[in-house]
Write a protein that binds this DNA or RNA. Structure first.
Lengths: 215, 215
DNA sequence: TTTATTTTCGACACGACGTTGATAATGCTC
DNA sequence: GAGCATTATCAACGTCGTGTCGAAAATAAA
């Protein structure tokens, strides 16, 4: 019987990684590579399995579907994104520089893995498994963001509007812009984008022109 | 030989609508209905053809694929969106009320046809035909928006940043928020959303708190 | 009516999916 | 390291949606 829930055992798990765990991990790794090159919909199970060194039918021993594999991939790589925003979330005042650095780091990641990040976080219908991880990630990000806004609101820095809603907009704006940069690389001057996006988010939250109010 | 390019002849066409034109239109109408209820990926050609009253293989006489049909649908319904923004684009000053009305109208439309609008405008990989219409529509919207910003910039109202980029952000923010409202209807107080989105866009462009600067 | 064109659809081949059950490899216990 | 339970592998099968072809029917033009 297969008791897996689609995730390799945590690093601090008691049990040593069995051969199956390795295979599962290599499937996830293979997915990361394959999904970089072509849309999820065009990658076949056969291809994924082949890239991980097993037969197509063996795939189903580990995952129920392509979407479930994507969900596992996202779930595993999800933690990486946390440090990107941590610095800004902890910063004092507007923290323009910290925010900018975080956005730049995020964009760098999207430039590499944008294809599957888009499918996971932007696509309207990525399947139930992905929707689940997405919801978790987005909620988490929005909540942290919202907390930051509330803190600043108490300090009289912000400009009104529901913190939750503002946070959601900021998070979604970031996501859609990164996705668009991935999809249309030629259409953007990336430095300019990061600058403008930084200002946009600050303006969204704090209202005033950040270049003036930041000091 | 089939010389169609996937579009019913314009209203001012000389030629009377042939039977094939009617079929093509009924396919588009059928698509609009079917795509409301389920993701494009889950709708079958058989279903679409059936809803239009023809056999599955007959579908291919009119369109090359589901995606091509979606592209035709979007192309046909694209014009509707223009009036939504026209009022604001023409307005003097910040035009908060006009903008708000436009956003409310947009949201109303997304609440009905959000499923296929999302697939057409948000989905990372909707196929080449849809990408083409999408690009046309988005570019158009951004350009108009950008013109408005440039006009206001000359009047000293705006707060800096490339007008094109700001416009792109505003357009994308609107799209992603509408899509999210469609996907998670329960998560939003819609009046509040429209208010906050209005302010967000104004703040994005004009910087200052619109409730103060608007008068 | 006759002729040309447009439209319809059954039948085929193909590719991807997901399941099943038999078989092999692994790891655990003594 | 032999025996046993569990885990892992894969070939074969049936199913479903796709896209194409060509023959036949319906429509429009002459």
């Amino acid at each position: 019987m297969d008791c897996r829930i689609g995730a390799v055992p945590a690093i601090n798990s008691r049990r040593a990684p069995t051969k199956g765990d390795q295979r599962e991990q290599s499937l996830i790794d293979a997915a990361r590579a394959v999904f970089r090159d072509k849309p999820i919909g065009q990658a076949t199970i056969d291809e994924l399995a082949g890239a991980a060194g097993i037969a197509r039918s063996g795939f189903y021993f580990y995952f129920e579907s392509k979407q479930a594999l994507l969900a596992a991939l996202v779930d595993q790589r999800l933690a990486e994104a946390d440090d990107e925003t941590a610095e800004w979330l902890a910063a004092e005042g507007l923290g323009r520089d910290e925010l900018r650095r975080g956005l730049a780091a995020g964009l760098a990641r999207w430039k590499v893995d944008g294809r599957w990040l888009s499918e996971a976080f932007i696509s309207p219908d990525p399947g139930p498994e992905v929707m689940h991880v997405r919801a978790r990630f987005v909620d988490e990000g929005c909540t942290l963001f919202s907390k930051r806004i509330q803190r600043d609101a108490r300090a009289g820095l912000t400009v009104g509007g529901s913190p939750d809603l503002i946070a959601k907009m900021a998070v979604h704006l970031r996501g859609i812009m990164f996705a668009d940069v991935y999809a249309n690389p030629g259409a953007y001057d990336e430095d300019e984008l990061i600058d403008t996006l930084t200002d946009a988010i600050l303006r969204l939250v704090y209202g005033a022109d950040p270049t003036e109010a930041g000091r």
